[in-house]
């Protein structure tokens, strides 16, 4: 029961509620009993199919889209009973109907895994077009609509991780793949709408990695732009974790000394402006340690200075972020000259 406010139910109220629910309960039990009996008897009829529609989506009072056994049964009816006597056009129509139905159910239950699952099954069972030449367009339309639905779901809740996962699945499965650059543009749009949306930043890490790996985008050039983008978020709201996490991804293992030093200086500027910023201090410690480990010669004066700076910062962090004090203390203890 996520986010349902507590309400005290007196004995009278409970009795009254059960009285009210009695009719619904018997309807529900009769409907589920009918469906489960038909299922046991391997009833693959259209009647049985319609009963599952009622229970999962259309019944006026007792729908239950979380009853996955009934989704399973529905799919069995389709593959065993209905598809064998249907033309490809009819099958496509049936699947389209199911996609429309689940789209409606999803609006009310955006986080029910079984519904997303059923859509996926539908998409994967769209038959080949009888007209071979037309096959591509026939499938393509279904998948593009899917991307539209998932965007609608992300408009409603831009952090819905099921929707993001499903989006990645759709992008990877579309018969005509979309350019990954288009996906970068989509994440930019989501980030501009709300840069505290870490899901969008995360998606960017995945898509950019792929674009860099394929050589489609020049890593050095795009890194520069990404730093600029994320710096806007860091400076606008230094307490927002999303930006700092993304920045940390951009820094990576810190093998580029120039970038490391540039970003350390910039964060220092931000810290000077906002002297109580925990994320500035935390990131400075992390990046200075990368500098220590990767770039500063052992025993050098620079190294000693950097270590001392880290110690000071960790001391400050223990003060301003006492919840995580032990971690800062341990990090300080690990610093060796």
């Amino acid at each position: 029961m996520h986010g349902v406010r507590r309400a005290r139910e007196t004995r009278e109220v409970r009795t009254a509620r059960r009285e009210r629910e009695r009719a619904m309960l018997s309807t529900y039990l009769a409907l589920t009993d009918d469906i489960l009996s038909r299922k046991k008897n391997k009833d693959w009829s259209r009647d049985a199919f319609d009963l599952t529609t009622q229970l999962l989506s259309t019944h006026p009072s007792v729908t239950n889209p979380e009853f996955y056994t009934v989704w399973n049964y529905r799919r069995h009816i389709l593959t065993n009973g209905i598809f064998p006597r249907s033309s490809p056009e009819e099958i496509k129509e049936l699947l389209n109907d199911d996609l429309a139905m689940t789209a409606k159910v999803l609006k009310v239950h955006p986080k029910v895994y079984w519904i997303w699952n059923h859509r996926r099954w539908c998409l994967e069972h769209i038959p080949d077009s009888p007209d071979y030449a037309n096959n591509q367009a026939w499938r393509r339309s279904a998948w593009e609509r899917e991307l539209f639905i998932v965007e609608k779901m992300l408009d409603a809740d831009s952090r819905n991780f099921l929707a993001w996962d499903y989006r990645r699945y759709v992008l990877a499965s579309m018969p005509v793949r979309r350019s990954e650059k288009a996906e970068i543009a989509y994440t930019t749009k989501k980030i501009e709408a709300n840069f505290s949306n870490f899901s969008a930043w995360h998606q960017r890490t995945k898509v950019l990695s792929s674009l860099w790996a394929s050589g489609e985008v020049d890593r050095t050039l795009s890194l520069h732009k990404e730093f600029e983008l994320v710096q806007n978020a860091m400076f606008t709201l230094p307490e927002d974790q999303s930006a700092w996490l993304y920045h940390r991804w951009l820094i990576g293992s810190g093998d580029n000394k120039a970038i490391l030093e540039r970003e350390i200086n910039l964060i220092q500027t931000l810290l000077d402006e906002q002297p109580d910023s925990k994320w500035c201090m935390e990131s400075l410690v992390t990046y200075k340690r990368l500098l220590l480990d990767n770039h500063l010669p052992t025993g050098s004066q620079e190294k000693t200075t950097a270590i001392n700076q880290c110690r000071t910062l960790l001391g400050q962090l223990e003060e301003i972020d006492p919840m995580r004090r032990q971690r800062y203390w341990e990090m300080g203890a690990q610093l060796k000259v």
């Binding site: 059960r18 309960l25 529900y28 007792v62 009853f67």
Partner: peptide, 11 residues
């Protein structure tokens, strides 16, 4: 077991 929600969450 008399509650609708008990049965609705049987899954």
């Amino acid at each position: 077991k008399d509650d609708l929600s008990y049965h609705m969450t049987a899954h």
